[in-house]
Computed example of a mutant assay.
Amino acid sequence: MGRLNDLESHGQAIWLDFVDRKFLAEGGLQELVDEDGVTGVTSNPSIFEKAMGYGEAYDDELAEFDAAHPGAATMDRYEALAISDIQAAADTLRPVYDRLNGKDGYVSLEVSPYLANDTDATIAEAAKLWRLVDRPNLMVKIPGTAAGTPAISATIDAGINVNVTLLFGIEAYKSVAMAFVEGLEQRVERGEPIDRIASVASFFVSRIDTRIDDAIDAGTGGDAAKALKGKVAIANAKMAYQWYLDFIRSDRWQALAAKGAMPQRLLWASTGTKNPDYPDTLYLDTLIGKDTVNTVPPKTLDAFRDHGTVGATLTQDIDQARRTLAEAERLGLNLDGVTATLVEEGVASFSKSFDDLLAAIAAKHPATA
């Protein structure tokens, strides 16, 4: 038992922010499950682009698919490869899912980032991925955009687990939390079960500090703002969690909990430290709390295993977190504007990775061709 395992005693789950054919085949995920207590996996277009676009790990399966489906669209070729990986990861985590009665053990697969601003297409894509993967411990990733929010409600209503991604601002988080609740309530109205429907709200962290710190370095807020460097993202996350704690005590949530509903856990994403001046475990050490998930890239996972600090830190220094956000506003750091921009940039970045991914797959030909 080590530091990563110890997080469970504080109610936090650790998910791996990585998936790769070779890693799965060689038992890398199983080892992390067995030794470090990892209970989930997340993927995104950037991860798949790195995994599929380079090397030969996927070439044999791609050749087999092309032979069986001559002339298949590049998107279909991608889905065949991605779904195979997601199924393998889900099967590795299935014992965790069973042991925890559906409370964890999930693998996330993203809807196409091209659909981020199309509600109906997102709903249809989520249903398709759910059907194709055919694993109860799949979470379909839907962005927390204006168009994505009603898709979240509809997808939960359909009984599909949802990982809401690309959340940066507290108001956007509140909106998707309510969408999750509305989806559950619609099922209750029809007399359908809600006890096995899981969701996480993925709140991105380090990108906020990167953008705020850049503004401070450029002179925004003057010398007074320098004391806020590396603190705004953590304060923002802590206040989002305070809202969560208040909400789960509400009558509205308690009515659903009485019917077996599982809370939509806050998930801390983008937790690799971008600034080398900051501790490499900064966004793990400071965000440990009950009913949360931290999805961690392999390098950061290794760092926390070696020298991370375990404690109930998410509920510490809440008054200071409030002061930090108030001071950021007073000094003109425009957190609301930053978070809105980051959502747009996140969608664009994932779309660019998807472009590159599909181009890499399109360039590959069956070995027998």
Rank of each mutant, 00 (worst) to 15 (best):
Q320L: 14
P279I: 13
A82Y: 00
D120V: 11
D291I: 05
L29F: 04
R77G: 10
E26L: 05
A57M: 03
Y97I: 10
F23T: 00
D209F: 09
L333E: 10
L4Y: 03
N137W: 05
A237D: 12
D223F: 06
I288P: 04
V181P: 04
E26G: 02
P70A: 13
T92G: 07
V310D: 11
Q87Y: 05
P70S: 07
D76T: 08
K299N: 12
A233Y: 02
G289D: 02
A177N: 09
N294Q: 06
K128F: 14
A116V: 08
Y241F: 14
A321S: 15
D213Q: 02
L314H: 08
A303T: 08
R99A: 15
L357R: 01
E8W: 12
T315E: 13
A89M: 04
P279G: 14
H365V: 12
E329T: 14
D302Y: 05
F203A: 01
A89F: 02
S250L: 05
Q30Y: 02
G191A: 00
A235R: 02
Y244C: 07
T281F: 00
V107M: 03
A258L: 04
N44F: 08
P150E: 04
A158L: 01
D104Y: 11
V205T: 06
F304I: 10
L16D: 08
P297M: 05
R323S: 15
A25D: 15
T339L: 11
A151I: 06
R190T: 00
A227I: 03
V162A: 00
E329Y: 05
Q320K: 14
P193Y: 07
F180W: 01
I361Q: 01
M239G: 02
S153Q: 14
E345M: 06
A147H: 05
L4D: 03
T74N: 13
I170W: 06
I142K: 02
V293P: 03
P279H: 06
K229N: 02
A72D: 10
G260I: 08
W268N: 04
L93S: 08
D217K: 07
A13K: 09
I248P: 00
V181T: 14
A367Q: 13
A201G: 01
G346E: 11
M178D: 14
L335G: 11
I123V: 15
A328H: 12
T119P: 09
E185W: 01
S351C: 07
A67R: 14
A312R: 09
A121M: 04
R207C: 07
G144M: 07
G55H: 05
S199Y: 00
K259W: 01
E125M: 15
K290H: 12
S199H: 00
L62G: 13
L115V: 13
A25K: 14
P136R: 10
A360P: 00
E329Q: 13
I361T: 00
L4P: 02
K103E: 15
I14F: 11
